[in-house]
Design a protein around this nucleic acid. Structure first.
Lengths: 122, 122
DNA sequence: CTAAAAGTTAAAGTCGACTTTAAGTCAAGG
DNA sequence: CCTTGACTTAAAGTCGACTTTAACTTTTAG
């Protein structure tokens, strides 16, 4: 598979794939006449990266997570620590968002809303 | 109040306050010998901006929301539309995060985890 | 054989929310 | 009066995740 096909199948831009390679999230594929050729393993890998980033992981986090999950090995203690940290992060985001959501709903609902009343008098 | 005091009280950097002013989130205060002097209303306003941004609003959104809530007027239809949009955004973030959280918990829990098993075989 | 499409690189650009820097000016204490 | 610290500006820098650009080379279809 050339880079364009991998891009098409994964829904990414070719430039993103090269970027992942430079960032060491993807290993350097073999080349034919200077051009990259990928196996379907690479597609799995790319889809995984994409999924992780949709889930809110940074690329650096994703790199560590994927390296931790490499070569069919069970997840190690370092990986678990990272996962716990990430869960904490997600939980606090969820709290923040619940709070924001109810504030917005309150504002929509509250007929007498003013800046001061809504934000500073309770 | 000089800018340094406002910064101290609000927990922001003076540069952030100047930045908000340039971005028109704060109105230009009067000056004494070229230096900005603020009233406590400005502190309220800054705290509100800070709160909004902690809640995940962009500065541009915040600007529109605050302008919509200006001068003790009840919230208008334009504001309500924005609020609805924001609520949708927040709800979809929350869904994403719930998904991520249970995935991470699954991975932590799953003794036989491998890349393929966890991500591609279900 | 040739033209177009797709590949290559390094380097620069983008966006948001600021911070930092450079080069000053103003204010307060001793 | 002088120093120090807080203030001023415009412009450039930062971070993350890419994209775009410029300048080429390789592959592919006709």
């Amino acid at each position: 598979m050339k880079i364009g096909e991998l891009a098409g199948r994964s829904g990414l831009n070719s430039s993103a794939i090269r970027y992942y390679e430079k960032k060491e999230l993807l290993s350097t594929p073999h080349r034919v006449g200077g051009q990259r050729r990928y196996s379907s393993d690479a597609l799995d890998r790319v889809l995984l990266i994409r999924f992780a980033s949709e889930m809110g992981f940074t690329l650096d986090d994703t790199k560590v997570f994927l390296n931790g999950l490499r070569s069919d090995a069970p997840v190690g203690p370092r990986w678990k620590k990272l996962a716990h940290r990430k869960i904490q992060e997600v939980v606090s985001n969820m709290q923040r968002e619940r709070c924001l959501k109810s504030l917005l709903e309150h504002l929509l609902d509250c007929r007498c809303c003013t800046l001061k009343l809504c934000f500073f008098n309770d």
